[in-house]
Design a binder for these strands. Structure first.
Length: 498
RNA sequence: GGAUCGGUAGCUCAAUCGGUAGAGCAGGUGCCUUUUAAGCACUUGGUUCGGGGUUCAAGUCCCCGCCGGUCUACCA
């Protein structure tokens, strides 16, 4: 390991020595099991002052603190519920076991059993009468006070982050609880959870660059899905009137504070309702999460802004927001050139190659969306922005949809789903243009079979978690975010590919 | 992809104008029977991200590369 013949400074070697010593004493440093009767939290909840030193528990956990004072010692062990203090005395535990215990490293996993008591300072503590090493830790833990803060180290060593950073541990627990709450909520509304395929041979349901992979047996390229939509709608045709899927989608695009190339999407479709029904559903779902998981409807985002999720949410049309942002009531009757000139005055850069509606949407994305901190349903969105939604009867230039924006991000778009196969085909053709090989004929054939009217919604789960946990970065809500692989030493120089 | 900031001990961080690489925690050896980031004494530990250059002298200045943060681009 080390070039230095004196290994006393090499933390791994020191622990290797301790490991060998344990083995030479007949102790297995990696036990097969330990009988854990309680966790730190259930043990603490059990304690009663009138039963001091009477209630026996058997716990296991990782040592996070050690405090040895001659013939007695304190330590803290951490399990899935948190930390609990243990106390061991030489004369109670026995000399041999006591000296083994005090030689442990922070990071070792041990099992301890004995009665609960309370220390002078009022902390519920386990009096160790029996103890065993459960699993030796060969590597040191990060510093106990500051924890681990280097972002790169955290993302590449999530296990260390979870051991030492309580905030991170709690955020991922909360993520799990929120997703579980969503499942219960939808199941209570008679939704059925399904799993559709991840490998697609046609990219559809969104506009994003896909990851490509090769299917050897069929000798053709497949794509990792960029959306769940088209398969789920085929299930609507099949008669599954209320379906949802929570799954990973993959988009081959850049990384940012709000984008990870693989992320978790919830999509749900409910027949015999429309986007208005989806409005009620998402509001009710978020209320349920606030009540059951968070215990509050008041959220603070990473900027310190207060977000109130409990009240009636604002509802406003896309056009109204654009008019407010541009301070131009006639925005939508202006030419593309006039709009481009106006964006310059507004201080945003817009690519002049873009289509007219895209210029307007740039205004929305750069000037409107970032300021929608409180929950806002943006309705009557331009028809070019989604080919899968129903057109509004009064104004066929806009769609019967909403985009729910909170915390300056789009959290959930929802539609009155398009079920006219002829209109659907036209809108698809307008979208793909010349590239007719990208037309999903299987989906269109399914629609021609007859799809019930339906409301549908997609929820970016990671962004919802960012919102609900006050995270600053999507990577703090994804256990193993995408990172460039660490370079191995000196690979042969390859010609650079552009 | 572009701009910009950063990378120093296992971890968290110092290092003045370019002048002997340091502290706390972790580790080691002792002392200590209710501690709370326990304490006390002594102590180990460095390819300053990698490679080149300027200089009597480089953690510090210059160039190239690697990795990351932020912004930006792509992104219905």
């Amino acid at each position: 390991m080390s070039k230095n013949p004196d290994n006393s400074h090499d933390l791994f070697s020191v622990r290797l020595g301790k490991l060998e010593k344990l083995r030479s004493e007949g102790v297995d440093p990696f036990r097969a099991n330990w009988n854990q009767t309680h966790t730190s939290a259930t043990a603490k909840a059990l304690y009663k002052p009138e039963k001091d030193n009477e209630i026996e528990v058997s716990l296991a956990g990782r040592i996070t603190n050690m405090n040895v004072m001659g013939k007695a010692m304190f330590a803290k062990i951490q399990d899935r519920d948190g930390k609990i203090q243990i106390y061991a005395k030489r004369e109670e535990l026995g000399e041999e076991a006591y000296f083994k215990l005090r030689k442990h490293d922070i990071g070792d996993i041990i099992g301890v059993s004995g009665p609960l008591f309370v220390t002078k300072t009022g902390e519920v503590t386990v009096r160790a009468l029996k103890y065993a090493i459960v699993s030796k830790s060969m590597r040191p833990l990060p510093e106990k006070w500051h924890g681990l803060s280097d972002a790169d180290t955290i993302y590449r060593n999530r296990h260390l982050d979870l051991i030492v950073n309580e905030e991170s541990r709690e955020r991922f627990k909360k993520r799990s609880a929120i997703i579980s709450c969503i499942r219960r909520f939808l199941e209570e509304r008679d939704f059925m959870e399904v799993e559709t395929s991840t490998l697609h041979h046609i990219v559809g349901g969104a506009a994003a660059r896909p990851f490509v992979t090769h299917f050897n047996a069929l000798d053709c390229d497949f794509y990792l899905r960029i959306a769940l939509e088209l398969h789920l709608k085929r299930l609507l045709v099949g008669g599954f009137d209320r379906v949802f899927e929570i799954g990973r989608v993959f988009r081959n695009e850049g990384l940012s504070r709000r984008h990870n190339p693989e992320f978790t999407m919830l999509e749900l479709y409910q027949a015999y309702t429309d986007h208005r029904g989806m409005m009620e559903l998402i509001h009710s779902m978020v209320q349920t999460i606030c009540k059951d998981v968070l215990g509050t409807t008041a959220i603070t985002n990473s900027e310190g802004e207060e977000i109130e999720l409990g009240d009636q949410w604002r509802e406003v049309s896309y056009k109204q927001l654009i008019i407010e942002a541009t301070e131009d009531p006639d925005w939508f009757s202006r030419s593309k050139e006039e709009k481009l000139a106006a964006t310059e005055k507004l201080g945003i850069q817009v690519n002049p190659e873009l289509e007219d509606y895209e210029v307007t949407n740039n205004v929305f994305e750069k000037l409107v969306e970032p300021n929608l901190i409180q929950p806002t349903f943006v309705t009557h969105v331009l028809k070019e922005l989604c080919p899968l939604a129903k057109l509004n009867e009064e104004d066929p230039g806009v769609l019967d949809v909403f985009e729910l924006c909170i915390n300056g991000q789009e959290i959930a778009p929802a539609y009155s789903e398009q079920n006219d196969p002829f209109v659907q085909k036209e809108m698809f053709e307008a979208q793909v243009g010349e590239e007719t090989q990208n037309l999903d004929h299987e989906f269109l054939a399914a629609m021609e079979q007859g799809m019930p009217p339906a409301g549908g919604m997609g929820i970016g789960i990671d962004r919802l978690i960012i919102l609900l946990t006050g995270a600053a970065n999507i990577r703090d809500t994804i256990l193993f975010p995408a990172l460039r692989p660490e370079k191995k030493e000196e690979t042969e120089d390859r010609p650079k590919e552009e």
